[in-house]
């Protein structure tokens, strides 16, 4: 099956999506404080990796990577509300790019699959 990543147009389209997505995240008062002191280029590269993954593109991230990468944010208090907000901005970004609702739902499901890893908790919770 072709991934949404390929349908969207691969890396070129993901580059366009990163700006829109990152802007939405930074403009969100709930999320903005966590992005105040980060290097914007490095953060954009991470967002690109994230968007690549949730659209089914080539990614080599494990649950362990996800846990390690977000551990400091969990310590600072991120939770489901933050995760939901990010997924919401992801859906908004894809909508802006003209992606159909059923495909956005597929991406949402892929994003959902990393929720417990991002929030560093036991899958059973």
């Amino acid at each position: 099956m072709t991934s949404l990543y390929d349908e969207l147009g691969g890396a070129v389209a993901i580059d366009a999506a990163v700006d829109i997505f990152y802007r939405k995240v930074m403009a969100d008062d709930l999320l903005a404080p966590f992005f105040d002191d980060v290097d914007m280029e490095r953060q954009a590269a991470k967002q690109k990796a994230f968007l690549t993954m949730v659209t089914g593109g080539p990614a080599h991230y494990t649950g362990r990577d996800m846990r390690r990468a977000h551990a400091h944010l969990v310590a600072e208090g991120i939770g489901d509300a933050h995760f939901d907000a990010v997924v919401g901005h992801l859906a908004g970004t894809l909508k802006e790019l003209g992606v159909s609702d059923d495909k956005i739902a597929r991406v949402g499901a892929l994003a959902e699959s990393v929720r417990n890893d991002v929030l560093n908790r036991d899958p059973a919770v």
Partner: peptide, 8 residues
């Protein structure tokens, strides 16, 4: 890291 052209 990613070896997929994403993380740079």
């Amino acid at each position: 890291s990613c070896r997929a052209g994403a993380c740079q």
